[in-house]
């Protein structure tokens, strides 16, 4: 039995889940509180990751950057770039309602992914963007390091959770909830719905980009493949829905639960009879689907439910 190894793996698991939970909090601002269907999370997640990689990465001849700057600079740059991107995307799309916004944002995320794929000078194109350092990596050994980085990620999750809680409880947050419940009523109260939606989109996208930035250090190497809709967008939707939309604790819990189901089920398939072993991957996928189904049946409102 190998408890320290299990704990060591748990640290890396929690780093990934932490990065995802940041993105999930961002989606919660947009969908959970404002009712914006953003199916383009991958665009902002990727923007955050790539900006972080370009700013903090070592020098490269093949793409823009790396500027070898501190992590904090990278995160701030990721926030700024994603805010600008969200603003540009918001102008045409926020005039759309519900599912229409969803479809167009999905298209925009794919556009961003294809731009990253094709513009080699920008981010290495299909070659990917390598050489992303491990923040504070020189201080401790690799196994201990995961705990240090986990601490950093969880601190950021905590800060963002605290800020988002403050924001949604403020008068501004109440306007968002009013828009979610009934746009017409909010407009009748004299609120500029479009402006509030734009602010919510930008805030959520900036948070997603922070998640992407910390994801970049987790994988150490970025390629456009990481930001396909499944792993870049829909898994984060699953996290928020599982945890409970409109509930920030739920957004974080959902990220850990979904990523846990996604990863820990793989340990079971080791115990399959050898005849089935070659199909283990598919059996694992079915297992994940069944667990989600069960969750949706038992708790359609998410584990913690909404507010």
């Amino acid at each position: 039995m190998n408890v320290s190894g299990l704990l060591g793996y748990f640290a890396t698991f929690a780093i990934a889940a932490g990065a995802y939970s940041i993105a999930s909090l961002g989606l919660n601002v947009q969908f959970g509180y404002t009712g914006l269907y953003n199916f383009g999370i991958a665009a902002f997640f990727a923007t955050g990751a790539y900006v972080e990689g370009i700013i903090t990465g070592g020098p490269s001849m093949e793409h823009l950057g790396g500027f070898d700057l501190p992590v904090l600079v990278g995160v701030i740059a990721a926030m700024v770039v994603s805010a600008i991107l969200a603003y540009i995307i918001g102008i045409p799309t926020l005039r759309l309602k519900g599912e229409f916004l969803g479809i167009s944002s999905l298209g925009i995320a794919e556009t961003i992914r294809l731009i990253i794929t094709n513009e080699k000078w920008l981010a290495g194109g299909v070659w990917g963007l390598g050489d992303i350092p491990r923040p504070l990596g020189n201080l401790v050994g690799p196994k201990t390091y995961n705990w240090v980085y986990l601490g950093l990620v969880l601190a950021v999750v905590g800060i963002i959770y605290f800020l988002v809680q403050k924001i949604v409880k403020s008068p501004w947050g109440r306007v968002l909830k009013a828009i979610r419940e009934d746009e017409g009523v909010a407009a009748a109260m004299g609120k500029n719905v479009y402006k509030y939606k734009m602010q919510s989109l930008i805030l959520g996208s900036v948070i997603m980009a922070v998640g992407g930035a910390f994801y970049a250090h987790y994988v150490g190497y970025l390629s456009p493949e990481s930001f396909r809709p499944l792993m870049g967008t829909f898994i984060i939707w699953a996290m928020l829905m599982a945890g409970g939309k409109g509930n920030n604790k739920g957004a974080i819990l959902g990220a850990f639960v979904v990523w846990g189901v996604w990863t820990f089920t793989e340990f079971f398939v080791n115990y399959l009879p050898s005849g089935l072993a070659s199909r283990a991957g598919y059996i694992n996928a079915i297992f994940i689907a069944i667990l989600f189904q069960v969750l949706i049946r038992i708790r359609p409102q998410g584990i913690l439910g909404g507010e």
Binding site: Y9, T12, F13, A16, K143, S223, W262, T263, E266, F267
Partner: peptide
């Protein structure tokens, strides 16, 4: 890559 890194983390730890 995300699942690949996770799989490798399992193996190593």
């Amino acid at each position: 890559p995300t699942s690949g890194v996770d799989a490798a983390n399992k193996l190593v730890n």
